[in-house]
């Protein structure tokens, strides 16, 4: 069982990850698997990137979201297990970084974080596009804007 003190880092040698507006997209560059984390999932990913351990993540969740610590800890552990299973994070010996310290005026509704997996993205991208070699319209529609 993972320690509450264990810290993690994104597996940056194999994974491209970005967070925007609290939502994360993760791409395993080795096998082409795509993942997404929305809502609480994106929030937790940001904390993991900052080097937070389970205890710190749970504390931050309880401050920001309408959730009890027991529920939050169970969900965080599950998400971390999922992220490790998919080789998106690894254990880290580094010190943790800064955590969000300000309590919001009102806590946000809580949703169980889940890692969405899109295992067929590479296969879909390999589908032949309709007109792959077309670089100029062979004809123009009269009323089309330039």
């Amino acid at each position: 069982m993972m320690s509450s003190e264990t810290r993690f880092i994104p597996n940056t040698s194999e994974v491209a990850a970005e967070v925007l507006d609290g939502e994360a997209v993760l791409i395993n560059l080795t096998n082409g698997m795509y993942y997404s984390l929305v809502g609480t999932g994106g929030f937790i990913w940001s904390l993991l990137e900052g080097g937070a351990n389970v205890n710190e993540i749970v504390s931050a969740l309880v401050v920001q979201y309408e959730v009890k610590a027991e529920q939050a800890e169970k969900d965080v552990r599950q998400l971390i297990d999922d992220l490790k299973t998919e080789a998106l994070i690894t254990d880290s010996n580094q010190e943790g970084g800064a955590l969000p310290s300000d309590a919001p005026a009102q806590r946000q509704p809580y949703e169980v974080p889940s890692l969405k997996v899109y295992s067929d993205m590479q296969a879909l991208l390999a589908l032949d596009p309709p007109m792959p070699d077309l670089t100029d319209a062979p004809w123009k529609q009269p009323n089309a804007k330039a």
Binding site: A16, A17, E18, L20, V25, I27, L125, P129
Partner: peptide, 18 residues
Amino acid sequence: FLQALGARDAGEILRIRR
């Protein structure tokens, strides 16, 4: 869409998503 997904550009994917 396909350019961002094909390039595995997570930042651009999120910007398009927004």
